[in-house]
């Protein structure tokens, strides 16, 4: 392990979690390893509807390059995605679609709400806009901004990564989590 960390080239390698180390072995707890692996290989599903989607394009493009954070591979199918990134206004007509996409995702799943519209309806306090996606699905991290800058979107991803890394393996089976989903009417 230690020689990987002390890699002389400039390729950045993720630091190993805390553990016991001796000649030929390394011991740590399972959820730390799982958390580390999950954290650095998020497959995001971009649910881009409007302006924030264009900023997401900038985040993916050459200057900001989200791939540096282990999210190179976008998953356009909800069934293989870990992270639902909701970017842009969600109109009431779109609400059921968003919910269906969320339901199709497999556990464990995280939701990042990018931008003022997705988080609260933003400036569109109007009859046709859903006033925040947390009315229909649970959200893990909110990113403010209208639209947020790519740095902010990356910051949101880093926050999601922290959540993922520190999540207990049993969280998804806990009664609290089941209760949370039940409060949204999701089984």
């Amino acid at each position: 392990m230690s020689e990987i960390i002390n890699n002389p080239s400039d390729i950045k390698v993720v630091k190993a979690p805390e553990g016991f180390e001796g000649p030929g072995f390394f011991a740590t707890s399972l959820d730390k390893v799982v958390g580390m692996a999950r954290k650095n290989s998020i497959w995001p599903l971009p649910f881009a509807t409007s302006c924030c989607g264009i900023e997401f394009m900038a985040t993916m493009a050459s200057t900001y390059d989200l791939a540096r954070f282990g999210s190179e591979r976008l998953s356009f199918s909800p069934r293989q995605a870990d992270l639902l990134m909701v970017m842009g206004t969600i109109a009431k007509k779109m609400g059921p679609v968003l919910r269906q996409v969320y339901e199709q995702m497999a556990e464990p799943r995280w939701v990042l709400s990018v931008g003022a519209c997705a988080s609260s309806g933003g400036i569109f306090d109007s009859y046709s806009v859903l006033q925040g996606i947390d009315h229909i699905i649970p959200v893990d991290v909110y990113v403010p901004g209208c639209p947020p800058r790519p740095e902010q979107i990356i910051d949101g991803i880093i926050n999601i990564q922290d959540l993922i890394q520190n999540e207990s393996l049993r969280r998804r089976n806990s009664p609290e989590y089941k209760q949370l989903l039940a409060s949204y009417g999701i089984e």
Binding site: G121, D125, S126, Y127, S128, Q131, H135
Partner: peptide, 13 residues
């Protein structure tokens, strides 16, 4: 909705 008697705001706020 565009008729003047209806409000612009979302009723669920």
């Amino acid at each position: 909705p565009m008729r003047k008697e209806y409000p612009v705001e979302d009723r669920t706020r």
